[in-house]
Nucleic acid binder design. Structure first.
Lengths: 155, 155
DNA sequence: CTTTTTGTTCAGTATTGACTAAACAAACCA
DNA sequence: TGGTTTGTTTAGTCAATACTGAACAAAAAG
C-alpha cells in the first residue's frame, strides 16, 4: 500500500508498538484516528488493514479492555462498530503517569527493608522515592489544569 | 531465596519488566539499589542473582547503553565494577516524558494528510495533538522546578 | 612463556506472543 | 427449518528474545 494514509497508519502502529501495543492493535488505532466515517465495522477493519478476522476480533477486544476504543451500537445493523473512545489519549497519558506511583511504592518497600541498616545505604532508594513522589503530586495538578483549559475552550 | 532482600529484587525486576526491561537486567538494577557496597563486580552479580556469566555480561552492557548503570574503574582491581548511575531515575523519567513528543509529531503528520479533507475529520487528531503539546510544554517547567528544589536541598 | 583470572561471543534451547486458517457458535433472514 | 452473515475460539505456525554452557580472547600474575 503506497497510499499515504496507510503509511501513516503504519507509523502510528510502530510508535505504539514501542509502548507495548501489538502491531495490529496499533494499526486499528491509527486507522480509527483518520478513517471516514469514524465508526468502522470489523469487516471494514479487515478490509482496510489486511489482517485476518481472528486478529481483528482479538485485538479489538484487547483495545476495548484497555479503554482505547469502544463498541458503538448501531441500530439497523447487527455488525459491530468501533471507534476511538473520546478522551482516550487524555486518559492514556493520565494513567501512564499515574503508573509512576508503582515505583514510589517500590522504593518505599525497599526502604523498609533497610530500616536497620546504616542510613547511607538507603540513599539510592530515598532519591528514587523523592523523585517519584514529587511527580506523582505535581502531575495531579497539571492534569487538573489541562482539564480546566480544555473545558474552557469547549464551553 | 526467601531472603527478603532478594524478594525485593524480584519485585523490582518484575516492575521494570513491564517497562520492557529484561528480567535479569531488572534484577541487576534492583540489586544495585540495595546492595552493600553499592559497587559490585560482575562475579558478585553472578553470585547474588544466580544468573550466568553470559547473561550478566550482556545485560550490564545493555544497562550501560541505556545509561541506567555505569562501569566504575577501580584501581588495584582488574574486575569490572558497576553501580547505579547517579541521577538515573531522574533522567529516566525525563526522557520517558520527553518521549511524549513523538505522539505530537505523529498527530501533526496525520493532520497534514487531512489538510484537504473536511475539517471535522481532523478533530480526533487535533485533540490528540493539543493534549501532547500541552504536556510537552508543561513538563519542561515541571522538571526545572524539580531540579531547582533538589539543588536547594543539597546545597 | 605458561597459567589463571575475567569478560565477551557464539550456538543452541526454551518461552513467549502475534498472527492465520479453519472449526465453531450465534443471530438474522429466507 | 435451512442458509447466510458475523464474530469468537482453537490449533498450529512463525519470529523474536532471554537465557545458558562452552568456546574464545585478553590481560595480569606466576
Amino acid at each position: 500500500m503506497s497510499d499515504p494514509l496507510h503509511h501513516f497508519v503504519e507509523e502510528f502502529a510502530l510508535a505504539y508498538e514501542m509502548a507495548g501495543i501489538p502491531r495490529t492493535a496499533g494499526r486499528i488505532l491509527g486507522w480509527l484516528m483518520v478513517c471516514d466515517p469514524p465508526e468502522q465495522t470489523a469487516s471494514q477493519l479487515v478490509e482496510a488493514l489486511g489482517a485476518s478476522k481472528a486478529s481483528i476480533s482479538t485485538m479489538t477486544r484487547l483495545l476495548v479492555q484497555m479503554h482505547l476504543i469502544e463498541r458503538v451500537p448501531k441500530r439497523g445493523s447487527r455488525q459491530d462498530h468501533f471507534r476511538i473512545r473520546p478522551g482516550t489519549w487524555s486518559e492514556r497519558v493520565k494513567s501512564g503517569l499515574a503508573g509512576l506511583s508503582v515505583y514510589k511504592t517500590l522504593a518505599d518497600r525497599g526502604l523498609r527493608l533497610l530500616e536497620n541498616a546504616p542510613p547511607e545505604r538507603g540513599e539510592r532508594l530515598r532519591e528514587m522515592r523523592e523523585l517519584y513522589a514529587f511527580f506523582e503530586e505535581e502531575l495531579q495538578g497539571l492534569f487538573e489544569r489541562y482539564e480546566r483549559r480544555k473545558r474552557k475552550r469547549k464551553g
